[in-house]
Amino acid sequence: MSQTDIRTELQRAAPEPLLPVEKKLIGFSLRSGLVLLVVLAVINYFVPATF
C-alpha cells in the first residue's frame, strides 16, 4: 500500500459506530480495572512493603 493510499484511507475512512460488543469490552475493562486497583490499593495499605 502506497503512502498516498494510507493518507487517503485515514482521511476518508467511513465511520464505524461502536458495536455493543465493543461497548461491553470497554465498560468491562474499565470497571474491572478500577475495582482491582482499589483492591490492590487496600492490600498495599494493610500490607506495606517490607525492607
Binding site: 469490552l25 470497554i26 465498560g27 475493562s29 474499565l30 480495572g33
Partner: peptide, 8 residues
C-alpha cells in the same frame, strides 16, 4: 493499569 484501564 496497562491492559484494563489504558487500553479501554
Amino acid at each position: 493499569e496497562a491492559y484494563l484501564i489504558y487500553w479501554a
